[in-house]
Design a protein around this nucleic acid. Structure first.
Lengths: 260, 260
DNA sequence: CAGTGGTCTAGACCACCAA
DNA sequence: TGGTGGTCTAGACCACTGC
């Protein structure tokens, strides 16, 4: 595994560890270093480039984070096999890509009410008192006058903070909670399912009944891990898709979306 | 921002940087350190615990990776606001969770053929030669005799490697490619959509027509970023769901699935 | 046992920021 | 200008691996 020594400039503004990481990454991506093969030892690399071993370790840790190599104490550092089975989908590509595409995204408030928690909501919010009151929002998300999503959101009602008109336009559940509550949501759980529209949902979205949609249930939690917000949203299946990548990714891999 | 000095044991087998990271994480999760607040400077922390600044930096880098703090050169290190808008869904939870649940997962080969690339496939594989031949596999995934998913996979055909019976049972596209090809798939792209079953799909899965399903299109790429495999799979909407988390997560947050 | 990666130190110099 | 985080060094000792 020859490594061209020229490629590192100690006086560059680019950190040495970064240069070295990119150099090693290049060796792997070009096939010079194949999965399963060992990198030179940290001491060897340090000697080759006349740099400190700590700097070498910093470079290797970059590659480890990227999943391209893995180290084993007492044995060495080895090129990993690309993992292709853990593709992750980022849900927020959705609206972000629509904005990036230059389309105007608007939120339409269908209604905001104070409701008493029914059995389902008591369970979701892990509450005992059936008199607990919740704020209930119904909104429709549109791009260029085309309705794309229908969202139903519940948050715990506290009188301490008044509800401001501007808050209601915040399309995110966490935005609503922080605006109308003193608690800080610190974690969230989302469940993604598929379904078909009911008559009511179809009419709200202006599409046909039994049309395929994404269903996203979100639960927001505070520092004590107690639910402080819950929402159920549906996204039109003919307008939304999730894209995900995995493996040894080049930067130019991404891009592109379908707005149909 | 008081930090109890007792909590670090320099002689413990647990690394100092890890102890310190957990200590700071505890301060943040308990609310002692709130979003926006500054941590003590690295030199201060090093002095407090009489440890090296590099060790402090290692601890902080752990928290930075976890998204709990962020550093600004020349200013300091600050507690971040939890990011709740980038939930990621891991697709492979699917079959993994079914296995974890103790159910037997089986793959049924409906057919394996050599086909000539049509226009759609030529475009997908970025090929010019219309005589290019591809291997085409159709499989059904079942758990405990219930059919869950229907997969159609195409890989580039090379005579060099014979197709073995055992290879055909490998349910993953990358498994098929590596088994029947000399190229190494290094990256993958997946597109997740929703749809409803056609008559043919419904009959293969043993469910009704127009039932909601996940549609996953996967493209595998080699080192030169050329497509070497492509598949289109459908997953029953009443049996599959994706779960994702974001924010400041405690380990005990996860778990649980719906196999209906 | 020798060789590997994992941790840690006590310095150093730098780029950046705010006053 | 003084204080911050960012980088880098030249050591040290350790735990683990395989012979």
């Amino acid at each position: 595994m020859m490594i061209e020594e020229q490629s590192i400039d100690k006086n560059s503004v680019i950190p040495i560890y970064y240069q070295l990481a990119k150099l090693l990454e290049g060796q792997i991506l070009s096939g010079e270093l194949k999965p399963g093969e060992a990198l030179p030892t940290e001491t060897e690399i340090a000697g080759l480039f006349e740099i400190s071993r700590m700097t070498v370790r910093r470079a290797i840790s970059e590659l480890t984070s990227a999943g391209m190599v893995h180290s084993q104490q007492g044995k060495g550092t080895f090129v990993s096999s690309p993992k292709l089975n853990n593709v992750v989908f980022e849900l927020n590509n959705f609206n972000q890509e629509i904005k990036d595409f230059g389309l105007k995204l608007s939120t339409n408030l269908l209604g905001a009410h104070i409701v008493r928690a029914d059995e389902r909501l008591l369970k979701i919010f892990q509450l005992d008192n059936p008199n607990t009151r919740l704020l209930y929002f119904r909104t429709v998300l549109s791009a260029e006058d085309e309705r794309l999503a229908y969202e139903r959101k519940y948050i715990i009602y506290t009188k301490s903070k008044p509800i401001l008109e501007t808050n209601l336009m915040d399309p995110t559940l966490s935005g609503l909670v922080t605006a109308n509550n003193d608690v800080l949501p610190v974690s969230t759980k989302k469940i993604l399912q598929v379904s078909i529209t009911t008559k009511e949902e179809a009419s709200i979205l202006g599409i046909g009944s039994n049309a395929p949609v994404f269903v996203v249930e979100e639960t927001l939690f505070d520092l004590e891990n107690k639910p402080v917000g819950w929402s159920k949203s549906i996204y039109r299946g003919d307008r939304y898709q999730l894209t995900g990548y995995d493996g040894w990714l080049r930067k130019d891999n991404h891009g592109g979306m379908n707005l149909g």
